[in-house]
């Protein structure tokens, strides 16, 4: 695992990808911080929350090549024919991308230091948002890694990862629309309005229950929910396991 982690992490810095990703992140974080600073009050928590909306751009950039490029170059054969387990390959790759995210996050650490130096507040709510940020980073990177495993084309992989993350971010909205649609369809086919809307609401809340953003929103207020973090962790692990299975499939697949 360490071998894979080391290679992937260093390869971010051997090619421009890592620097570009970090500088995009720095610019965005800097913009948010600057706008707040110019307004005279800095809420690190809301900066971190705003930064979460950029997962959709940054995660595909840093995960697209992780496995797709190996397939294209034929280097994946090393993972199968050397005594490393495929799961440690997956773990090493996800850790590398995660570590890159941690490096990016140094920007926010600098912002925190500046804020404190300028008499601002770095409260427990902000700590909450940061914890959520990293759990989400793990989850989205896992999704991106999975997207990278199912194709040997980096662009396809980036697009798939983008779609995965976008859907996750829009889960509540999707839930709303689905709920409304189901309600109106049910009414149209003659279900009475109360039970139609009950069905719609049930579907909406079922979809919204999956929304990691809704689950973790209270962290910004300093309310830490272990079950929400556990959920993020589980989804990440599920995607890692699926990635592992996709790699394993290469062995026995007869297609």
């Amino acid at each position: 695992m360490y071998a894979i982690f080391k290679r992937e992490f260093l390869s971010y810095f051997r090619s421009p990808v890592g620097y570009v990703a970090i500088s995009i992140f720095s610019f965005l974080a800097g913009f948010i911080f600057y706008s707040q600073f110019a307004g005279g009050s800095v809420n690190i928590g809301s900066e971190v929350i705003s930064l979460r909306s950029f997962f959709v751009i940054i995660v595909p950039i840093i995960t697209m090549g992780l496995l797709a490029e190996d397939k294209k170059r034929g280097t994946e054969i090393l993972y199968y024919t050397t005594p490393v387990s495929l799961f440690s390959v997956v773990a090493g790759k996800v850790l590398a991308a995660f570590a890159l995210y941690a490096v990016m996050f140094l920007n926010v650490v600098i912002h925190i230091i500046v804020t404190l130096a300028c008499g601002g507040v770095f409260g427990v709510g902000a700590v909450g948002t940061i914890i959520v940020f990293f759990f989400m980073a793990f989850m989205f990177i896992s999704m991106g890694l999975f997207a990278s495993a199912i194709t040997d084309n980096q662009i396809v992989s980036a697009i798939v990862a983008f779609i995965f993350i976008l859907i996750t971010q829009l889960l509540s909205v999707i839930g709303d629309y689905t709920g409304t649609a189901v309600t109106s369809v049910a009414s149209a086919i003659g279900v009475n309005s109360e039970s139609a809307s009950a069905v719609g609401t049930a579907i909406r809340s079922a979809i919204s229950w999956l929304d990691p953003f809704a689950k973790t929103q209270d962290f910004r207020l300093g309310v830490f929910s272990v079950s929400a973090l556990f959920f993020l962790l589980c989804i990440g692990i599920l995607f890692l396991y699926m990635t592992y299975r996709v790699l394993e499939k290469k062995r026995w697949s007869q297609a």
Binding site: Y2, A3, I4, K6, R7, L10, S11, R14, S15, R73, G74, T75, E76, I77, L78, Y79, T82, P83, V84
Partner: peptide, 20 residues
């Protein structure tokens, strides 16, 4: 050959040593 074009020979062989 499973070679990484973006690595030097030294880096690559070091990586393979890690792997094995």
């Amino acid at each position: 050959p499973p070679l990484y074009n973006d690595m030097t020979v030294a880096e690559y062989l070091d990586f393979v040593c890690d792997l094995k």
